[in-house]
Write a protein that binds this DNA or RNA. Structure first.
Lengths: 341, 341
DNA sequence: TATTAGCACTCTCATTAGTTGAGTGCTAAT
DNA sequence: ATTAGCACTCAACTAATGAGAGTGCTAATA
């Protein structure tokens, strides 16, 4: 279904105005703010049409109109132009990242923080699980009297380590032998392809020092399981306190709980995202309890996998700004990660 | 100043009641709930006395009384008996910790979470800075074509690492030589005693490979500076949404901002804490803007230093429960850390 | 002298009624 | 097709009223 030019203009006016003020928009306001040379009465007729078509709704008889979910959807799909980040903002972001490129951990935190600041919504960055990376290198490093460090490096450049006890009877030479043997089996394989039975096989092939080898394998297994989790960072949670729609404590509680609990939060982020920005408005998000939020999310590529980045805010959201920002920041994040890691 | 037995009893009744209900307590209620065999009129007289002395206050004429800050202080100092954790709860905590003893990181997170759950206030754990630990061991480990890993281990058992680029011209043998030389200078020294001039000295003593050595030193410096920060974990932030005193959005915003910003939060935690539980009520906390919170905090020992653990909640707090819980959980945390790390 | 019953008084909270004003929908004129 | 005009609607604000909880004081009592 397509709308004629004037209806589009009116719809857009109402959306822009309502997003800004959070108040229902009346016909007079539409005419004044956007300097149309038609009368309020005409606008009223158009608005009545738009309401009938489902793009607008009225909180109560004789209030102004507010965009319906469908109205936002139409705007986003058919009319929206993404608003780009200003050069200045891009510069700021790049400066932030140049100063703090030590760990990918830090990078995603800074990026998320920046995104929240710029959009003034809550933002998130999901860094993909490393379990699809390949094992590159494993070493058992004696570090003190009875301790050694099991160090694993993946081809994506991630480093994981874990401390283990070493019995008296095990010599540094033993450690080297064991390390080499394991390296042979593991190297080049995907982390999540290494199963318990592989671990058992190694255990059997190395006849001596069984007990100790078990310890090493435990450490490896620990490394494998922890590396399976993707990393989630959320920033700007408090921004939602500024949105009038969450002045109601019950609603606020629900959405804060959502942002507070990583597992819960992940469940509302779409599984498959592309490099294109995707927008989910209100009830398009399938989640228990919280229907009054929108999500703007984009994928980014790193380590041969896809991470996710986006913002979460009220339905009354500046989609144009959010989409443009998420898009650009995602691209920059992707670049930086490629460059550095 | 000491109160006679009956005044104490009445003060306690009012505190317990008000903490539970968040409503001003009237004379009838005191008599009924605590089955005193004196009349409401007598209680009224006593309450008037207590108010004159400053232990109670009246929100308005002819409302019931609520405890003043001074009232809570008197109760905490002269009457309170800490309420111990139940055996069952202790058991649960220990079970949680036995399952998750891999990293001290995890331990403090679990402990903090537990504390928030049990008290239903917001909780925090501060893990001391490791900058006072001693350098134990440093190794430069080649991990792939042109990369090496600088690994540092402290005597407190913490492991830090950082990846660096290695120029073609530097051989594994070089790495070993450099590593050994650095080890000699660093080992046994406190992390925060190692200054830039030490780093420069090393740079000068090793004539060759200056550029590369700079890189290694950069990595070491990075490790030193990041290890200076103490770690802060806050849990149960959302619990404060349940307290009626924070139904006001402005107050809520302030306190959430406080809990959200680590630096800000640390500024209200007392510098010096002992093994004894310390309680700060309301304005006894010197902090801009937020006067309506109380803090219950205790120190715990680890790595030869002192960490802090506690809860933060409204002035209308179950101090008896909070104090007992913080005390016990702190002790258990201390034990676990000693055992494992 | 300490306690208590009785009662007038105070102040909040909830409810109701009245008023205002923004904004609509409809009709008739252009 | 557009618009001026006007009656109508409904939330939001204000004021008035009444109920109820709880006090403080006075005078009676043990």
């Amino acid at each position: 279904m397509t709308l004629d030019a004037r209806k589009k203009l009116i719809l857009e006016s109402i959306i822009k105005d309502y997003v800004e003020t959070a108040e229902p928009v009346g016909s007079r306001t539409v005419v004044k703010k956007h300097a149309l040379n038609i009368s309020p009465a005409t606008v009223r007729n158009e608005m009545a049409d738009l309401e009938e078509m489902g793009y607008l709704e009225q909180p109560y008889t004789s209030a102004g109109r507010i965009p319906s979910q469908m109205g936002y959807r139409y705007y986003v799909d058919c009319m929206m132009e993404k608003e780009a980040l200003s050069d200045k903002e891009i510069e700021i972001l790049q400066k932030i990242l140049q100063d703090n490129i030590h760990e990918w951990n830090e990078v995603i935190e800074k990026v998320s923080y920046f995104l929240a600041q710029v959009t003034s919504y809550a933002s998130f960055v999901i860094f993909p699980s490393v379990s699809l990376s390949h094992f590159k290198y494993l070493q058992i490093l004696p570090i003190e009297e009875n301790k050694a460090l099991v160090i694993a490096v993946t081809d994506s450049g991630l480093i994981m380590h874990r401390k283990i006890d070493v019995p008296e009877s095990v010599t540094p030479g033993d450690l080297e032998t064991i390390g080499k043997a394991m390296n042979k089996v593991f190297s080049g394989r995907r982390l999540n392809d290494i199963s318990r039975s592989d671990l058992r096989m190694i255990r059997d092939s190395l006849r001596r020092r069984k007990k100790f080898i078990d310890k090493v394998l435990d450490a490896v297994e620990y490394i494998l399981t922890t590396s399976e989790e993707e990393r989630l960072v959320i920033s700007g949670t408090l921004n939602i306190l500024n949105e009038p729609e969450f002045k109601d404590l019950e609603k606020l509680k629900k959405i804060l709980a959502l942002l507070d609990e990583g597992v819960l939060f992940k469940s509302i982020v779409p599984e498959d995202v592309t490099d294109e920005v995707e927008i989910r408005i209100g009830t398009e998000n399938k989640i228990e309890g919280v229907k009054e939020i929108s999500l703007v999310v984009s994928g980014y590529n790193t380590l041969g996998q896809r991470g996710k980045i986006g913002v979460i805010g009220p339905i009354r959201m500046e989609y144009w700004k959010a989409a443009g920002t998420v898009e650009t920041v995602g691209k920059i994040l992707e670049e930086i990660l490629k460059e550095r890691f």
